[in-house]
Simulated assay, not measured.
Amino acid sequence: MMPGQRAGFELDARLEADSEPLMWLGLCELRIMNDRRWPWLMLVPQRPGVEEIHDMTPLDQAMLTFECNTVAHALKRATGCAKINTGALGNIVRQLHIHVIARNEGDPGWPGPVWGHGMREPYTRADLHGLCEKVRAALQ
């Protein structure tokens, strides 16, 4: 169990397979998607059985908004991107998770969505570590 993880919470196996843990924020575990085409972070609220934002308590909703905004600012600082895309779809993985993605004109799929565009391109360990360190530094 990750430090700070709530009893009874279990990360969906698909989210775990597609991403790496980055850090604990408070309400959410921050993860990085292992796809080097886009700097792509994901916040997963540590609440068992929650599928939608409106399933959360008002206090958790406020904390989620704060953490999403903090991560979006940090990702923009860390990457210098032109645009941040934020979304919670949940059509395939029902467990609530929020995507925060750095986008630039000319990136794969621009200006369309990242979902369903081509094949995932995993990071090298060194590149993944480097982006994680930039994001951590921008969060401080």
Rank of each mutant, 00 (worst) to 15 (best):
M2V: 10
P3I: 04
G4C: 05
Q5G: 01
Q5K: 02
R6K: 07
G8M: 07
F9E: 06
E10G: 06
L11G: 03
D12W: 02
R14S: 10
L15V: 08
E16L: 11
D18C: 05
P21L: 10
P21D: 13
W24P: 00
L25W: 01
C28S: 14
C28N: 10
E29H: 06
E29T: 04
E29W: 01
D35Q: 11
M42V: 14
M42D: 03
V44L: 07
P45A: 03
E52S: 09
I53P: 02
I53L: 13
M56H: 07
D60L: 14
A62T: 05
N69K: 06
A72P: 02
H73C: 08
K76I: 04
R77I: 05
C81W: 04
I84A: 04
N85H: 11
A88W: 02
I92F: 10
R94S: 12
H99S: 08
H99R: 08
I101W: 02
P108V: 15
P108G: 15
P111W: 11
W115E: 10
H117L: 14
M119F: 13
M119A: 15
R120S: 15
P122W: 09
Y123H: 13
A126G: 11
E133T: 12
E133R: 14
K134G: 05
A138H: 06
